[in-house]
Amino acid sequence: MLTRDPEAFLAHVQGLSHDFGPATAKAAFLVSPDGFARAEESAQDNRYMAGAGDFDAGTALAQHHDLQAALSSERPVLCFPGAPATPDAVFPNNVFATVAGRTVIGRMRHPVRQREAERADIRGFFSQVMGYAETDLSGQPHVCELTGALVIDRARGIGFCGLSERCDAQGAALMHEALGLRATLLFDLAPGEYHTNVVLAVLAGRAALFSAAGFADPAVPEVLQALYGPHAIALSRQEHADFAGNAISLSPHSVWMSQRAASALTPATRQGLQAAGFAVRAVDLSALEAGGGSLRCCVAEIF
């Protein structure tokens, strides 16, 4: 099912079993912030990006190393080098996504990011080392920025896809098919939002962090409340602004976010995560957040 109808989507997915696949990834990969700088093309539709003078490449590199070391305490985490020609490559989850045995390569909106999809080393790792088949969407005309635009509940095999300049309806349909999802709900993001994963995180298939202000249709948060029940945690506007929605679970028992996001959490949000069985783990990514994304954006999952 691929639909814009929240009620039809909810009726369909409420009966689905949590047997689509593992709820969390078996490994992850990062791309180093070598040449990390403001990409003016990306800044056109990313209001979270800082000014050029606020980019500190040295600190970003050190924080990125700390991120890899921290995440490696839970899962194997690889890191590919970056390059000055691709200053946004530190956010690889927009370009590469996986399901068991398959890699999907997305179609980025901006040329500066389209170059990331051409990387022979990352493609070769999955095809030659992992033995994964490849679905390459990068050459077709419909924008589909993978798990930036599409937040996936891997346990149920369902997706939540926000439409914006970074993903159109046909691009969403291509991602839905390539990832073999059972059902995907399409909706418009609120004006000024560029990626769904800034306003929504599904955690290990049993909880959700969301900012109601990030959705144009109030029915979408209602779907999340109905699906995830007491573990659907509504974020405040301040938590949203500080990237608390840009979080990820790499194991069933923890949620990772930046230190900025963790510091913004209200007592109610912390209590909600604890009740859902998640310990909050945080890494200082203040320099990397100048690029307009946070921890979840840095992590490309390997299923």
Rank of each mutant, 00 (worst) to 15 (best):
A89R: 12
A133T: 14
A50P: 09
D66M: 13
C144S: 14
R123C: 03
R75C: 10
G15P: 01
A169F: 08
A290N: 05
V280H: 05
G192D: 04
R115N: 11
L2K: 04
F210P: 13
L30W: 11
R296Y: 00
A241R: 12
E118P: 02
G171I: 10
E74T: 14
G192I: 03
A149N: 13
H64I: 04
E116L: 10
L174G: 06
Q63R: 00
V104A: 10
L146H: 02
A232W: 00
D188V: 13
A28Y: 00
L209C: 07
G205D: 06
G159A: 06
E193L: 15
N197T: 03
C161V: 05
A276S: 01
R270D: 01
E177R: 08
S263P: 03
G180R: 07
T98P: 12
P87M: 12
N246L: 00
W256E: 02
Q14N: 07
P230S: 14
R296I: 03
Q271C: 09
V129M: 12
F210D: 08
D45V: 11
A247M: 13
G162S: 15
S32V: 04
A178F: 05
G291S: 00
P267F: 08
L250G: 10
H12Y: 09
H253Y: 11
G131A: 01
T266P: 02
A60T: 10
C297M: 07
L288D: 01
G51S: 08
F55P: 13
Q63N: 08
V280T: 11
M49H: 00
L16Y: 08
L200C: 13
V299G: 03
I158P: 07
E193P: 15
